[in-house]
Design a protein around this nucleic acid. Sequence first.
DNA 1: GACGAATTGGACAAGTCCGTCTAAAAATAT
DNA 2: ATATTTTTAGACGGACTTGTCCAATTCGTC
Lengths: 231, 231
Amino acid sequence: MFFMRSINTPDTFPPRSHAAKRQSILDAGARVFYQEGFAGANIDMIAAEAGVSRQTVYNNYGDKEKLFAAVVGEITERCNARAFAVLGTFPDRPRNLEADLVAFALRFNSNCTCDRDGKFLRKLIQSEGARHPELFASWRTEGPGKVWSALAARFARLAFAGFLDVDDPDIAARQFLALINMELQLPAMFGETLSEEDFVLSTRRAVRTFLRAYGRRDGLAPEMAETALQA
Amino acid sequence: MFFMRSINTPDTFPPRSHAAKRQSILDAGARVFYQEGFAGANIDMIAAEAGVSRQTVYNNYGDKEKLFAAVVGEITERCNARAFAVLGTFPDRPRNLEADLVAFALRFNSNCTCDRDGKFLRKLIQSEGARHPELFASWRTEGPGKVWSALAARFARLAFAGFLDVDDPDIAARQFLALINMELQLPAMFGETLSEEDFVLSTRRAVRTFLRAYGRRDGLAPEMAETALQA
DNA sequence: GACGAATTGGACAAGTCCGTCTAAAAATAT
DNA sequence: ATATTTTTAGACGGACTTGTCCAATTCGTC
């Protein structure tokens, strides 16, 4: 029993290195800022959550504001990196277009928009974005700015290969994201999570609607598309 | 010059009634809570914004928490009332389906989701919803709970009359809203507003995608639908 | 084992904010 | 005009936070 630190933090009794402590401060900061907002969070909570003295927080990050910036920066980076990793799994030559897009949408949501980092950013940007726009500037250029156009490029490729009928790939990409995120927003606002089945079901319906709008209207079969891709 | 009260509040020199003061406290509370969040807002700001002494705030609402609840309650009511008013203008017998849906979407957004009350609720629910779920419970049942199904009913009617090909009106309604709100979310997070042209343009594209997904695929003309409705 | 660096716990000043109280001023009703 | 109620400005206590300081302790490394 003597090696018990805190209730909510993983038990890290064997003393951590300097770097490990820096990291647990960031993690604790993320948790507390997420729940309490910037104004509501206090350094003592964060220090306790991180299993560290308050002074160590100040030694490492100097300031509540600077700590917040560090947390936002780290999470922005992680979030964008993960988004691009998932973008790499976009189906370029789908064997079953609908199923492949559903799988991709599920991956994208559960790894990017629905995970802890994604929820953190959405909530914090919503509540602090207007007050500290500089803080989220890098998220904005790297996140929506690049992810959207990268996704648009993948849709354009799919359209060129004959799988889709897309006039404006940028719009299509954004509408795709809007549709697959639809059901997640309201529960996220209340800190709830969708059940796995509802999650899959709503994603299926989103992709189906997307394909009804952007699927090919002429009678071209996917086989034709294969040959078109090779040309 | 002697009749100057505050910089940001409308000049209301002729003394206001009790009710008028109660109202300006609510309005000021909405503004301040919106910008600063619950934890960041302080009563002195609100009193100053309302052109009222701090004590009057306490006399009328007793408590910061109770004032917040009152503000949320009032705005929820206004917001839902306006949403249902706009829902009443849904095109039941469209002469031009696309144009009528665009007009409806523009009305809905600018009067409900995009106006001050709508932005207030979205932001506050995002930042305080997880902490005070009871506060927003009435918004949730009256807002999304009823607006969505009312909109679904209108779409169902449109489908029955032959204008649309809708399998699940509930999903269609939610997807319609997701599409027409798409471009508004990101700017709203940073306190920016879309230009009027971009607003209209994005609404047009949303409705077009919606109609590509839910428009009739067989060759039935809207004239046929008219006769079907009368039967 | 010993040395320098990092960490701890707690005390501390300064500031903020909530909610209460009071006496004077203003508004309202009679 | 007078009595009653509301409003105002300001002071106040208490609680909470931020950020600094410091002496004692622990850690990493030689």
